[in-house]
């Protein structure tokens, strides 16, 4: 049993390392840039912590911070799905288990390990809210736990709910915010159960892509991340910063957004690559080109949002970067481009 559990952990670790393997192809400078971007993200996150735990704030004031926390949670749920192995390989790993009980136990353990950062983020928030001594804060903590339980226990596929995502952004600041959220999550779950086995018709290439897009948990997580990054960017732009700092913040967030768009497109490209010959045999050259370009749609939407929220120069930079990253195959050349970009920033 011990050997098997150790093997399962090693496989988990290997998979986690593989998930970040593409980053190894980027140059050291690019990693430095990512570090800067992370710093840009960390500051508002710390602020999120302070404000969320601030007992002086009422529910209406705390709602944007709760909103941010919920988005992070949903992103993580999508991220967990990312690490799941295909069914056939899962069967193989389970076939090596000494008994069915050990297989089941190890599956649960791995799910828990997968969820560790999730709990790391949420449990302190819940504890702090509970201990703050303010009725509304305790109320929020209980609701947060309720949503967490629904996410971790009620959804076997670790799904990120589209409807819940909408709810997070459109719900007014009401006291019982968890109830409509849970109701919508359950509604989506029920719809998925009903549609199980009845695949939507793939009558057109667009419908085929749409069906793929909606079904993939990673896509939901990616869209959430894009929205989240844009929200953080918006927050930073509203601060009273020096023009130099503004330029830096804009550059960092442009890059993050462009990279997220790139990752989003890569998912579709990987999907097409897995069925490369099938599509080549089935499609005309024009249809094949359309298939490759279809995934630009969410990027275009994200960038339209960016255009409406941020200044035109930043938005244009983001568009240019996203397009370059999406269609450029040579990652080394991208590293050179990033160096030039940093140089430009320093000179400014």
């Amino acid at each position: 049993m011990g050997t098997y559990l150790l093997v399962r952990f090693e496989l988990f670790w290997q998979q986690a390392c593989n998930a970040f393997a593409p980053l190894h192809k980027f140059s050291f400078l690019f990693v430095m840039l990512a570090g800067h971007a992370l710093l840009g993200l960390m500051a508002p996150l710390v602020l999120l912590g302070f404000q969320l735990f601030n007992p002086e704030l009422g529910i209406v004031e705390r709602w944007p911070y709760l909103q941010m926390l919920l988005v992070i949670l949903f992103c993580w749920q999508g991220g967990v799905a990312w690490q799941q192995k295909p069914v056939a390989q899962q069967y193989f790993v389970e076939s090596l288990a000494p008994s069915a009980k050990v297989a089941s136990l190890s599956n649960k353990l791995m799910a828990a390990v997968n969820q560790l950062p999730f709990w790391f983020l949420t449990l302190p928030a819940c504890a702090y809210l509970l201990l703050s001594g303010k009725t509304m804060a305790c109320f929020d903590a209980i609701q947060l736990l309720l949503v967490l339980m629904a996410l971790c226990l009620g959804f076997k596929a670790r799904q990120t709910s589209w409807l819940a995502l909408v709810a997070v952004f459109v719900l007014p600041a009401i006291s019982l915010w968890s109830l409509p959220l849970l109701a919508l999550m359950l509604l989506e779950w029920a719809l998925q159960q009903k549609l199980h086995g009845q695949q939507l018709s793939a009558g057109s290439l667009f419908r085929y892509w749409l069906y793929w897009f909606i079904r993939q948990q990673q896509n939901k997580a990616m869209v959430l991340l894009i929205i989240f990054v844009q929200a953080l960017w918006h927050y930073w732009l509203e601060q009273q910063l020096k023009p130099e700092a503004m330029l830096f913040v804009s550059a960092v967030f442009s890059w993050i957004l462009a990279l997220l768009c790139y990752a989003q497109q890569k998912l579709w490209q990987q999907h097409l690559l897995a069925q490369h010959y099938f599509w080549l045999a089935l499609c005309t050259t024009k249809q094949w080109l359309v298939l490759k370009l279809l995934n630009v749609l969410p990027v275009v939407l994200a960038l339209l949002l960016a255009l409406s929220l941020f200044d035109a120069v930043s938005a244009v930079c983001t568009i240019a970067l996203a397009v370059a990253l999406s269609f450029w195959r040579q990652l080394k050349l991208l590293s050179v481009a990033s160096c030039c970009f940093i140089l430009l920033l320093v000179l400014n």
């Binding site: 496989l11 290997q14 998979q15 593989n18 192995k85 295909p86 069914v87 056939a88 390989q89 069967y91 193989f92 790993v93 076939s95 288990a97 000494p98 008994s99 069915a100 009980k101 050990v102």
Partner: peptide
């Protein structure tokens, strides 16, 4: 499902694929 049963059984099937990576 018991440990003594699983020790005696082996399966080869396309649906049980060795780890691809």
């Amino acid at each position: 499902g018991s440990a003594s049963y699983q020790k005696l059984v082996a399966i080869s099937a396309d649906a049980v694929a060795p780890l691809q990576d």
